[in-house]
């Protein structure tokens, strides 16, 4: 897609650090943010985020 973390962060109105933390899996996005990410990519939340019960 050729999208930088900075551009994604700007589009979602979050900091780049938040995007990095979500990518690394060190931070779980809230439902509203997950929804915004899904809308941005035109996908469903389930297709972007994989829920792993063991990680919780």
């Amino acid at each position: 897609m050729g999208l930088t973390q900075d551009e994604l962060a700007g589009a979602l109105s979050v900091t780049r650090q938040t995007v990095i933390a979500i990518e690394k899996g060190t931070y779980c996005a809230s439902l509203p943010l997950a929804h915004r990410i899904a809308v941005f990519f035109g996908e469903s939340i389930e297709s972007i985020f994989i829920f792993d019960e063991e990680d919780q």
Partner: peptide
């Protein structure tokens, strides 16, 4: 504005 409203920063 983004830094102050960022949900991870708030957490």
């Amino acid at each position: 504005e983004i830094e102050s409203k960022d949900e991870r920063n708030r957490m």
